[in-house]
Simulated scan of single mutants.
Amino acid sequence: MNTEILEKVNAALDQKNLKFTTEMAETFALVDGVYVPTGMFTPVRSDKSGAEAVITGNSFSDRYKPVQNEDAFSVIGEMADIADVEFKNIGSWGNGAGIFAQVSLGDSMDIGSTGDKVGRYLSVVNSHDGSNSMKLLVTPYRFFCQNQISKAINRATREHSIISIRHDARGQGRLKEIAAALRYADGLFASSEVAYQRLADRRITMEEAKEAMARMLPYPKVKENEEITERTKNHWERAVIRVVQTFQSADDGRLEVMTGWNLYNAIQGAHQHGVKKTAAYERSLIMGGIARQAEQSLETVQDILFDGGMSKTHHPEFDEVFSRIA
Rank of each mutant, 00 (worst) to 15 (best):
Tyr35Ala: 08
Val54Tyr: 11
Tyr64His: 13
Glu26Gln: 15
Thr56Pro: 10
Ile76Tyr: 11
Tyr35Gln: 12
Gly39Ala: 06
Asp71Cys: 00
Ala53Val: 01
Ile82Ala: 06
Lys88Ser: 04
Pro66Arg: 07
Ile55Cys: 07
Ala25Ile: 02
Met24Phe: 11
Lys65Pro: 00
Glu52Tyr: 02
Gly33Gln: 10
Asp32Ser: 13
Val34Thr: 14
Gly39Thr: 08
Val54Asp: 04
Gly57Leu: 08
Arg45Trp: 03
Phe41Ile: 03
Val34Asn: 12
Arg45Ile: 02
Ile90Met: 11
Gly33Met: 11
Glu86Cys: 05
Gly91Pro: 03
Asp62Phe: 13
Gly94Pro: 08
Ala72Gln: 05
Ser46Ile: 00
Gly77Gln: 07
Ser46Asp: 11
Arg45Glu: 06
Val67Thr: 15
Gly39Tyr: 10
Gly91Arg: 03
Asn89Ile: 00
Glu52Met: 09
Gly94Met: 03
Pro37Trp: 02
Phe60Leu: 09
Ile82Thr: 06
Glu78Lys: 14
Glu78Asn: 02
Val36Cys: 03
Met79Gln: 07
Glu86Trp: 00
Ala83Leu: 00
Asp71Arg: 13
Phe41Thr: 03
Ile90Val: 10
Ala25Ser: 13
Gly77Glu: 05
Val75Ser: 12
Asp47His: 08
Glu78His: 09
Ala53Phe: 06
Ser92Val: 00
Arg45Phe: 02
Ser59Leu: 10
Lys48Phe: 04
Phe73Met: 04
Arg45Gly: 07
Gly77Thr: 07
Pro37Ile: 03
